[in-house]
């Protein structure tokens, strides 16, 4: 019962949603909307569960003074502050937005921006034309960088056109192949889940 009930619910709801995609019946549609709205509620609980898990893991690390406990304590303070202000004052409150605007946003942007320095360093040390494939990648990269930056068309007006061709022909062909392959894989996995063959989402036996 512990396993068969969740499997039956998953199968029933899954096939219901698929059925709704192909037919237009008001009753079916109404329940599809109900099911998808319930997911929002369940997902919100999952976020809460994630927060509790973070508190448990990092709280333990801080109390036991294990390596990285200082970083964990910063995480806990931030987590508690955002949770308390978000729940009790609201996510549109000044206290919540202050931390978001003055801490989370600039810190995240700074971390992402630092990538440019690593890219510059890596382009000098690692991006070498060691083989034909690497040379093709290198040349494509240079053309795309020049084609996508205004200075490229100042150097040669054809750079944007060549960059567009790379994007619209070889890149497109490769990406479309990957996407179609992934889509077939998703259909296959979905069928396994709906038919109860794949039970990984239920955890260990």
């Amino acid at each position: 019962m512990r396993r068969s009930l969740p499997l039956t619910i998953t199968s029933f709801v899954g096939f219901w949603i698929v059925f709704d995609y192909f037919v237009k019946i008001d009753f079916v549609r109404t329940w599809t909307v109900n099911f998808t709205n319930w997911v929002i509620i369940v997902a919100a609980f999952a976020l809460g569960l994630g927060a509790v898990n973070l508190l448990r893991i990092h709280g333990k690390r801080v109390t036991e003074r294990r390596p990285g406990w200082m970083e964990s304590s910063v995480l806990l303070v931030a987590l508690v502050y955002m949770t308390v202000t978000g729940i009790f004052l609201g996510t549109s409150s000044e206290a919540f937005l202050f931390a978001f605007t003055n801490l989370q946003q600039p810190l995240s942007a700074a971390m992402f921006s630092l990538l440019v320095f690593f890219i510059a360093s890596a382009s000098f040390r690692a991006f070498r034309a060691r083989s034909i494939e690497a040379a093709v990648l290198l040349i494509s990269g240079v053309i795309l960088m020049l084609g996508r930056a205004p200075i490229g068309e100042v150097i040669w007006t054809k750079f944007p056109d060549i960059a567009d061709w790379i994007m619209q022909v070889p890149n497109l062909a490769g990406n479309r192949g990957i996407m179609i392959g992934a889509a077939i894989g998703i259909v296959s996995v979905a069928m396994r889940v709906l038919l109860g063959i794949d039970r990984g989402y239920m955890g260990q036996e």
């Binding site: 510059a120 360093s121 382009s123 991006f127 990269g141 240079v142 960088m145 996508r148 930056a149 200075i151």
Partner: peptide, 8 residues
């Protein structure tokens, strides 16, 4: 972009 290309 120019600096990165020169580095390459």
């Amino acid at each position: 972009h120019v600096v990165i290309i020169l580095a390459m």
